[in-house]
Design a protein around this nucleic acid. Structure first.
Lengths: 348, 348
DNA sequence: TCGATCATTTTGATCGTTCTAATTATTCGG
DNA sequence: CCGAATAATTAGAACGATCAAAATGATCGA
């Protein structure tokens, strides 16, 4: 591999001029620049990333932990998130390094390793939880990071904690409103056990929009761990209850798929059911779902970390001038035909 | 961040001794080593990754392209693969860098960029295709790589092409045999259009084991692009045909899910159906599926690249002594109850 | 006690780049 | 056509680690 010196020699200039052509072309004379560029092309020169990183003390690399494998249907959202992150990072000439961890402490160990070794100069956190050790450490050590997920239980406006999130409450509210506009009067809810930041927010959206009194709300609301079977079980329970729902909104596609299966089996194939995350499965079985705008989420995350369109600059973590967080609005994807019942999409 | 010099000073030794404690502890005297280790711990020293990489000319980083997002159910396999890769790479003190690409040429551009910049010193390729430009370039430039997937149409024994694959033919064959042992006599096949290396292999497994004459084989075999709806359509076609199948084996879980939906809708909820990849959805709806041993695949891939348990060594690409590939055997995961029909798993 | 041998530690150079500061070319008003 | 200002380029040092080889310390048989 040729070095900057080889290029310099070939172009008849000095090392530094070659470097300038690459990093601040504006200060190099037109004719010189062209000569150097030709030499670069001829020799097939590429800067040695590690040498550059060593000198500039910038890795231009973001680290992200892959979510632990779940058996559920969901989780695919985070895979999509990572994918989009890689895509958009590339556009800014950033690299993405991944790692896995067993739990928060293990993750923190990885974060420290990658940070202390200057492998990575910013982190993206997903799935924030109450009193997160990661956030605390990152803030304390002034390591740039952004989280996909609000700092539950923390100061939402703390400028040192940059975050992006999707307004699940609004998403569910819209879904419920839509169902009611279509004639549903008893929209039920299947969600996750409290306390769960994300889950509680989504449920709140349902509670706000369902238009039911307290007793009816209690009768039409259920919670369980995420999972298809769990969703099916609770849907069966709801459907055989005293006040049967005429629509169900769920906190996830897994729960919704279960509910759809239960409804179909119970002879109610047309019961409107809405899931969350708009996973591939939802599309496949014809399930409505609240779609998170991951493209925007990623774009906002990178913008908070690196600025408007900045290449690899990286502002300091505690300016208080512009907001350091962003709440995005999801969109309901409506699907009408229950493919489980039809056995296919559009007729035989 | 402290440097090796700071540690040296604190421990009262030279730079190099600190380096030796980290890289070849055996040659350092016990007492000295302890002193240095204490200093390292006290100062919280971590070697600067880029400096080390610059000097050693080794990045200890593997690059992998994330599969393009598909709408299908499958594809999750590759996410799981990436996850396990990150896990096992970590155990060897390797980093994993991800990227995305629009097509083979774009991917090659990324590969060149990462390689030429010494960002990455080995690549893992997934989803090999006939006459792959990536493989060709990597071999030509003697860049270490391993592919998950055989070099379709190439020399399977070429020592310069390290690969790991799962024997889909054997997997499908076993599945068919199992179905026949349970009494099925007309096992149908729903797969992908030929030519498709992976798809053709899987179909061959069916053809070998189904025990049907040519005409019946033709009547019971269908192919289509991957997708739930596509699977449902073909299953309907098969079920309403002259010679109706009493079991269906599919090339993917997407197709199988479609088939299951179609069968359920057609009043044949108990028709045995087998998918491929054992994705979360298969578990959720109670679909049998052929499971790829991804742990072993990843372990084998890393072993082919870095040796038995080697940390970050990296053998040269063309020794002919040991095999440079590995074909692993998948395992059928049997599930009996069709949850679509029951509307849940284990009764109400 | 001496020189040879082996174990341990240190010194100087180097990886490929960019930073800082100094040097040389060029432009321009008068 | 000169001197000052600005533009363009260059030389030397530095980033933080490891390599290669030299220097020192310890061990041991004669």
């Amino acid at each position: 591999m040729p070095t900057v010196d080889d290029v310099a020699q070939a172009a008849g200039v000095s090392r530094q001029t070659v470097s300038n052509v690459l990093n601040s072309p504006a200060i190099v004379r037109e004719t010189t620049r062209e000569r150097v560029e030709r030499a670069i092309a001829d020799l097939g020169y590429r800067p040695h990333a590690s040498a550059r990183r060593l000198r500039t003390r910038r890795s231009s690399t973001i680290g992200i932990r892959l979510d632990p494998l779940r058996d559920g249907i969901s989780g695919a959202v985070l895979d999509r998130f990572v994918h989009k992150l890689a895509e958009q990072a590339d556009a800014r000439d950033l690299r993405v390094m991944i790692f896995t961890a067993d739990g928060p402490d293990d993750e923190l160990a990885h974060i420290r390793r990658l940070h202390d070794g200057s492998d990575v100069d910013a982190f993206v956190l997903i799935g924030t939880v109450h009193g997160d050790v990661r956030q605390q450490w990152l803030i304390e050590h002034r390591v740039p990071f952004v989280s996909f997920g609000r700092p539950w239980g923390g100061d939402l406006a703390d400028p040192r904690h940059r975050w992006v999130d999707v307004d699940g409450r609004a998403g569910v509210r819209d879904a419920v409103n839509r169902l009611r506009a279509s004639g549903a009067e008893r929209v039920a809810w299947i969600g996750w056990p409290s306390p769960s930041g994300t889950g509680d927010e989504r449920r709140a959206g349902w509670a706000e929009a369902c238009g039911l009194d307290g007793a009816t709300q209690a009768a039409l609301s259920r919670s369980t761990e995420d999972g298809v079977e769990q969703g099916a079980a609770l849907a069966r329970e709801l459907l055989s209850g005293a006040t049967a729902p005429d629509a169900i909104v769920c906190a996830s596609d897994s729960l919704a798929l279960g509910a759809l299966m239960a409804a179909t089996a119970a002879g109610r194939p047309d019961l409107p059911i809405v899931g969350f995350d708009n996973t591939p499965v939802a599309g496949a079985v014809g399930l409505s779902s609240v779609d998170q705008p991951l493209d925007e989420v990623v774009a906002a995350a990178l913008e908070l970390l690196f600025g408007e369109s900045g290449g690899d600059v990286r502002p300091n973590p505690d300016s208080n001038e512009e907001p350091t967080n962003r709440l995005l609005v999801p969109r309901l994807v409506e699907r009408r035909s229950n493919h489980l019942a039809l056995g296919g999409t559009t007729g035989a």
